[in-house]
């Protein structure tokens, strides 16, 4: 049992590092080849856990090869459009001006129910509201509504806006995030002054958000 435990830990660390090196976090954003690699990774990782008589190297080497193949694939895809089309496919237009392209649906082997379900997940309940709908290479649906059905922007209603910039966390769990300070062009001293004004110690802070205009939101640790 101890052997199994140690193997699980080693494989967990190894597979986590492998997925991190591949550079994707959300499984829904994976391209077809990346999805294949992720599934294969889990298969290879589980083999020596199920059977202690199988050497760990039988899992580690295939995982290394898979990571290398995926990196090589992504590098070639970056350099070559042709290769990218073969490897990942193309995005396909399935709705234009409220009309379903039935030929494309047949090609994709999508049913109308699949399309309607995907539209509903994008808060679109009427196909006539859609100007364009595109199936991306990772299987997700991108939707552009017709202008009259799009939400009004501040520009449309002629409302004056001020740019508060990007709100960024600068302290998480008592630790100052220097990278985010640089993004907002704020120094550590400014943060300390703000905390001093609010009579709060940095270590008491669970989350501190700040924007370019130094509007802050602080959540203290419980």
């Amino acid at each position: 049992m101890l052997t199994t435990i140690i193997r699980v830990v080693i494989l967990y660390l190894f597979v986590s590092a492998a997925i991190r090196i591949m550079g994707k976090r959300n499984i829904g954003e994976l391209q077809p080849t990346e999805l294949v690699i992720t599934l294969l990774l889990s298969e290879f990782a589980s083999i020596p856990i199920e059977d202690n008589s199988i050497p760990l190297i039988n899992s580690l080497i295939p995982v290394m090869i898979l990571i290398s193949l995926e990196i090589i694939n992504s590098v070639i895809s970056m350099k070559s459009t042709k290769f990218r089309n073969i490897s990942d496919g193309n995005a396909l237009l399935i709705i234009k001006d409220g009309k379903l392209d039935q030929k494309q649906l047949k090609k994709l082997r999508f049913t109308v129910d699949d399309v309607l379900s995907a539209l509903r997940q994008k808060d679109v309940f009427d196909i006539n509201e859609v100007a364009y709908a595109i199936i991306e290479t990772n299987g997700t649906l991108s939707v552009l509504l017709k202008p009259k059905f799009q939400n009004a922007t501040k520009q449309d209603v002629k409302v004056k806006t001020k740019n508060d910039g990007y709100t960024c966390p600068v302290i998480i769990d008592g630790v100052v995030l220097k990278k985010n300070l640089d993004v907002l062009e704020i120094n550590k001293e400014d943060i300390e002054k703000i905390l001093e004004k609010k009579q709060v110690n940095k270590k008491q802070v669970f989350l501190m958000n700040i924007d370019k205009n130094k509007n802050t939101e602080i959540i203290l640790k419980e």
């Binding site: 090196i21 550079g23 190297i57 080497i61 290394m64 090869i65 990571i67 290398s68 990196i71 090589i72 992504s74 590098v75």
Partner: peptide, 18 residues
Amino acid sequence: KRVIIAIVLISVSVYTGI
């Protein structure tokens, strides 16, 4: 950096095999 990682991993795998 990733290309170098890929090359290193393939080299290690091939070397281990040989």
